[in-house]
């Protein structure tokens, strides 16, 4: 009986931890990262994930001409500054925030619509003896209402 109770508790923890992390991610995206988009209007899409130091993510999106865009990519406090790179279809680097002191936002517009790739990397803290840390990374897009 005790063993069954133990199993139920362990299972409940395994199920609830990811849900709690996701909820934390939503709160972070909505209350912190979204503010970085101002005065642009958030497009309403939700892209966020729990990433660990050293891990990478990619996002594919078509951006349209005649629109003014702001990309905001933010990580929670547990993580070092997030590195992101924007590439075109030929994998040419159009922008990297590595050259801009890991700035969280990038404003741009296009003369013609293009499909772009956003590569996101959580750097590993140098000289950190601790276990790699995990946290939420949110990717948000803002547009200007004309």
């Amino acid at each position: 009986m005790k063993r069954l109770l133990y199993l139920i508790i362990i299972s409940a923890i395994f199920v609830s931890v990811p849900i709690a992390s996701q909820a934390q991610c939503k709160g972070f995206a909505k209350k912190i990262c979204r503010l970085e988009l101002e005065p642009y209007i958030h497009d309403g899409n939700y892209h966020a994930a729990i990433l660990t130091e050293g891990e990478e993510a990619e996002l594919y999106k078509t951006f349209y001409s005649d629109q003014d865009y702001r990309i905001a990519i933010c990580g929670t406090d547990e993580l070092p500054e997030i590195e992101f790179t924007i590439m075109d279809s030929k994998k040419t680097v159009l922008y990297t925030n590595k050259d801009k002191n890991f700035k969280r936002t990038w404003d741009f517009k296009l003369e013609s619509s293009q499909q772009l790739k956003i590569a996101i990397k959580v750097p590993v803290r140098e000289g950190s003896p601790d276990e790699p840390r995990s946290g939420c990374v949110a990717i948000m897009f803002g547009l200007k209402v004309k």
């Binding site: 309403g44 994930a49 990433l51 891990e55 990478e56 990619e58 999106k61 790739k117 547009l143």
Partner: peptide, 20 residues
């Protein structure tokens, strides 16, 4: 571009939202 998808933790495919 899609053929060259790396081994990454998470891949997002982002469609224009209804607002966009």
């Amino acid at each position: 571009m899609f053929e060259d998808i790396g081994e990454v933790k998470k891949i997002f495919y982002s469609l224009p939202s209804p607002i966009e």
